[in-house]
Design a protein around this nucleic acid. Structure first.
Lengths: 163, 163
DNA sequence: ATCTATCCCGAGTAGAATGGTCAACTTTAT
DNA sequence: ATAAAGTTGACCATTCTACTCGGGATAGAT
């Protein structure tokens, strides 16, 4: 999972929609003004968000974008995955000649990055747009705690569990 | 905390030292060959690692680099912080005109990135070079457990405490 | 002394990624 | 019809990455 400004802009935009939505679509122009992101850049981002199924578009006057799954059903990890194509954190590409199975000492860090990626994914998939709007972020220390908690109870009422 | 290949190379290099160290210094040429990183690039990285106090250098023939704090005393987060200067994850720079205190809706995601950064830092500071070499990465669920444990006891006998 | 292995340092650089702009087009409410 | 909006594709300036290059400085071996 890549963490660039592109992904952050996309999250900002969708949080903006989640905060200001009232059933009617939100135009990119509004988002551009409120979040200080250029309109054309937002168009690029929303093209990806739409094909990932995170937003629905309404064309014509009075149109704009809606959250396809609602604020509770949209996880931050989904947004970032939609706009930031994943990065290869390790050199040992499975198909490449002389992968990491060939040279053990070269890939000592493989598992480290893998595990770090898990930690990040775990945290970001535990946070929804609704959480960000309501600022339910702190006290959420330790993604793994949270993961176990998700299986036991559903305190904060996450409507959609996992894919 | 930034997560680029530069930081990953630095970690690979130090893991290589941790694995192959036997009291005698390791040369950059050895590391370059084993990890397939260019020698000149390693020189750049080790300049930063040295000024951060993570490695000691020995000049002249028979010289090379040593881990300044030992494999148990070197945390992955230290390495990445040493070579990858930090990124600003939010637009609201505290000193800038019209910071995020001025426009609340613009900085709804502020706390999210802050908290994500904490999660990453927490995990990476819970892992030492010795852990990577020994592949003690999984089962390490929940960085918070580990961090608290570090302050209470010193189970794994860190031979070299500080610089 | 001088040779040579090694670290040390600053400048330069090709290519990729970022963060856009611009122009033209399609759809649809009024 | 007209205008408001999304849709698409091409293009571009700047910055960052991941290096290379060239020359030192230091210290062990001879």
């Amino acid at each position: 999972m890549r963490l660039s400004t592109k992904g952050r802009y996309a999250v900002m935009a969708l949080v903006d929609i989640a905060k200001h939505a009232q059933g009617t679509p939100i135009t990119l122009a509004e988002i551009a003004e409120r979040q200080l992101i250029s309109l054309s850049y937002l168009e690029q981002l929303f093209a990806k968000l739409r094909s990932a199924g995170l937003v629905k578009s309404v064309r014509g006057p009075g149109g704009g974008y809606l959250l396809a799954r609602g604020a509770d059903g949209t996880r931050i990890s989904d947004i970032i995955l939609a706009v930031d194509e994943p990065i290869r954190t390790t050199r040992c590409t499975p198909g490449a000649p002389m992968g990491c199975s060939g040279n053990k000492s070269r890939c000592l860090t493989h598992d480290l990055w893998e595990e770090l990626g898990n930690q990040i994914r775990l945290y970001l998939s535990s946070v929804t747009l609704a959480d960000v709007v309501a600022n339910r972020l702190l006290g959420r220390s330790g993604a793994l705690h949270r993961e176990r908690a998700d299986q036991e109870t559903s305190e904060t009422a996450p409507t959609i569990a996992a894919q």
